[in-house]
Design a protein around this nucleic acid. Structure first.
Lengths: 166, 166
DNA sequence: CCGTTGCTTGAAATATTATTGCGCAAACCG
DNA sequence: CGGTTTGCGCAATAATATTTCAAGCAACGG
């Protein structure tokens, strides 16, 4: 990647692959307006440069028996770096915790959790999360429904900015 | 899909594709222990049955110029269904809002937002979100760092449950 | 102004992969 | 038992990915 800068074609590639990660390379090439070989090279370069971190199937948790999704707002006793790291490491080892973000403000961490049912989550909450070292406060909120679920980047905003630069 | 039930091979397929959505079908077949054609048939069936909702490249927002990630906890004035839906619809039209979850408890919605910089987010916050009809409270928290980012389902938990059934 | 360098492209060739068609075996059911 | 269903895998075919290579093009320095 020459200098780490992306041209409009690269951005379009990223946008397309974000929308459909299994698109064939020929289809992708057609959409971004170049032929297949350079398109593939660009994709590889984007992967190597870390712009693309991976590809994942989006699986329907509910159908798989994970009826419950919960956000947990966690407050810690100590915010020393060592303690923060220790808590993060714990989160990595809890399968029910799918995302863990460190925040500023009075909440130290927000966790996105899943569970097969409420009682499983409650057990986790009381026996694991609340019982964990250094954890002071946990406020939980059940997800009633998800209205928009598009992790990633809004490429339309990106294109608007790129246009301004011209 | 015969009745909608999944056997261990199906679950393994889902787990593998969740981990790497661009895996070739032959590789996938090798890993789950069957030959390519039935493997592909299973994948197609899983897609049709809705267990797989799509495939997406995970793009690195920071590299693309989205330095800021924010969780916004939103409280509404009215929780009438029509008002909730209207707010959800707004969220779908805001590019900076990437996820919108309706919660129980005192927070009505949690939004995961991204922005190129703080001032962009502030403008969005004051001119769009806070200005929106029916919005009473918005508490925001900047994401300092993400420690675990694995949306989806913990298949190890799933397998443990399946084993119990035996 | 021209040649060199560095970089990117696209056509063609080749290697892999996806996909279809079909026969086979096990499980299930009357 | 015989018929039906279901899912498997082999083999053939179609599509795709990937490599190879020659050519185009801009920047640069003589």
């Amino acid at each position: 990647m020459s200098g780490g800068k992306l041209d409009p074609i690269d951005r379009k590639i990223l946008a397309e692959l974000q929308a459909d990660g299994r698109m064939t390379n020929v289809e992708l090439a057609k959409r971004v307006g170049i032929s297949a070989p350079p398109c593939l090279r660009r994709v590889r370069a984007l992967e190597e440069a870390g712009f693309i971190r991976g590809y994942h199937a989006q699986v329907n948790s509910r159908d798989l028996g994970f009826e419950v999704q919960v956000f947990a707002m966690v407050g810690l006793n100590s915010q020393a770096e060592a303690d923060l790291s220790r808590f993060e490491q714990r989160c990595r080892n809890w399968p029910l915790v799918r995302e863990c973000h460190m925040l500023n403000g009075e909440i130290d961490f927000i966790l996105k959790c899943v569970a097969p049912d409420l009682s499983t989550f409650q057990s986790f909450l009381t026996e694991e999360l609340l019982a964990a070292d250094n954890v002071i406060t946990v406020k939980t909120s059940l997800v009633i429904r998800g209205a928009k679920l598009e992790p990633g980047v809004p490429f339309d905003v990106l294109e608007a900015r790129a246009a301004e630069v011209d």
